[in-house]
Simulated assay, not measured.
Amino acid sequence: MSETATPSAKPAGPKWEADAKDDIRTALRKFQKPLQELVQRDANEGDTRLLVTDFLCVALGYDKYEDLTTEYAVRGEFADYGVRIEKQLVAFIEVKRAAQQLNARHLRQVETYAVKEGLEWIILTNGQTWQAYHVTVVTGQQVSTTLALEVDVLGDETTAKKVERLFHLHRSALKRDTISELWKRQAATSPQALADVLRSPAVLDAMRKEIRRQNSFNADVDELGRIIRSGVIRPELVIDAKK
């Protein structure tokens, strides 16, 4: 009786996605030791940039000459990197030295560049930690910058989780704007978004009906809204007190 060959497992996604993740997985092993050494000796920003450039090319698939512009001029100032995909500027990258903790001041610096150039995406890194932020500019409102993803290359998370997050920064993924879908999903379930849902008329009315079912008490919807605003939701999430 002849044996039937077992068909090989099909990749979970398209080939370009599998290839991108393979790039990242291989690079994480390759860069771990050099990155650890940079952190241990508190390497300067210039040395960190050398490693970041190599990581962008080897792990994330960018062409050093076609896709990356160092010291990108922004109205008399300079972003560390401008990232172009098919000649279109899509993001700025700000690099800090390997042992330096990334902070809000660093973010504000590159955020200003993005606003001036009309970009949605900025990346902040010290080689070890990679953060990607979405920048939203609405006329007459304060600029909103929200974290879309964060990866600690030397952290305790599994390699698989690091690969899944870094994938959205790979050239192939950024070209297809997968990071926007990631950001939209996160924004939809952010504390602010959920606070808005809790205060929506439909949810307040559903609360009123459930309270009546459980306690035979017909609560006032406006009063429920006041209680939600003042006693349930953190004050900083209540942007519009009239809601």
Score class of each variant (00 low, 15 high):
35 L>I: 08
174 L>G: 04
175 K>G: 00
183 W>C: 03
223 E>C: 04
196 D>Y: 00
230 S>W: 09
39 V>D: 07
178 T>M: 05
103 N>F: 11
83 V>L: 04
128 Q>M: 09
235 P>G: 10
117 E>I: 03
26 T>I: 12
232 V>G: 12
59 A>C: 10
96 K>H: 09
125 T>R: 03
149 L>D: 08
150 E>W: 03
47 D>H: 06
50 L>P: 00
116 K>F: 08
157 E>P: 08
241 A>C: 03
99 A>N: 13
210 E>F: 08
237 L>H: 11
137 V>F: 07
90 V>H: 04
180 S>P: 00
201 P>E: 01
232 V>W: 15
68 L>P: 05
80 D>V: 01
60 L>F: 01
140 G>V: 02
84 R>S: 14
65 Y>E: 14
123 I>Q: 12
115 V>S: 02
41 R>Y: 10
62 Y>L: 06
33 K>C: 06
84 R>I: 05
145 T>P: 02
195 A>N: 06
82 G>C: 07
223 E>M: 10
9 A>P: 02
170 H>S: 06
130 W>S: 05
239 I>L: 15
115 V>I: 14
156 D>A: 03
3 E>H: 12
212 R>M: 15
213 R>Y: 14
60 L>R: 02
48 T>Y: 06
230 S>M: 13
145 T>F: 02
101 Q>S: 15
238 V>S: 12
133 Y>A: 00
104 A>T: 15
115 V>N: 02
108 R>C: 11
103 N>V: 11
184 K>T: 09
196 D>I: 01
118 G>F: 11
243 K>H: 09
177 D>K: 15
189 T>Q: 14
217 F>Y: 15
198 L>T: 08
207 M>H: 13
164 E>C: 04
122 I>A: 02
39 V>Q: 11
113 Y>L: 06
67 D>T: 06
75 R>V: 06
181 E>T: 13
17 E>I: 03
192 Q>P: 00
82 G>S: 08
44 N>W: 01
19 D>V: 11
242 K>L: 15
97 R>P: 05
213 R>C: 07
158 T>V: 02
67 D>H: 12
133 Y>L: 00
103 N>Y: 11
119 L>H: 01
214 Q>N: 05
228 I>H: 09
54 D>E: 12
113 Y>E: 10
158 T>H: 02
122 I>C: 03
143 V>Q: 03
179 I>V: 04
145 T>D: 00
211 I>C: 12
136 T>D: 13
19 D>T: 09
96 K>E: 14
